[in-house]
């Protein structure tokens, strides 16, 4: 499990959320984002947008199974990389 902070001024809106899903679906096992104890399926764009992540929000990323850490770090870089 790794932690990430949302940097984008507009929060995690449709485009970055879409990029997260694109990577998450490539991972064989379950991938979840956790915000204040609320877990969401990172393979669902509706689920991610449903978290309503705003700038400064801190979330945990957990990917189960083989290559989990790689996926977690990839998602962290997407979530933190978008600063627009």
């Amino acid at each position: 499990m790794v932690e990430a902070v949302v940097r984008s001024k507009n929060g995690l809106h449709a485009r970055p959320a879409g990029m997260v899903v694109e990577q998450a679906v490539r991972h064989g096992g379950e991938v979840v984002l956790i915000k204040e104890g609320i877990r969401c399926n990172a393979k669902s764009i509706l689920n991610i947008m449903g978290l309503g992540l705003a700038q400064g929000d801190r979330i945990a990323i957990a990917a189960e199974g083989e290559g989990g850490l790689r996926t977690e770090n990839l998602l962290k870089s997407i979530i933190e990389g978008i600063e627009e």
Binding site: A14, N41, K43, S44, L46, N47
Partner: peptide, 16 residues
């Protein structure tokens, strides 16, 4: 046009 790509992703979303 990116809005249509987002629609595509929402379309296949398991949630709904």
């Amino acid at each position: 046009a990116a809005v249509f790509a987002a629609h595509r992703m929402i379309l296949e979303d398991p949630l709904w």
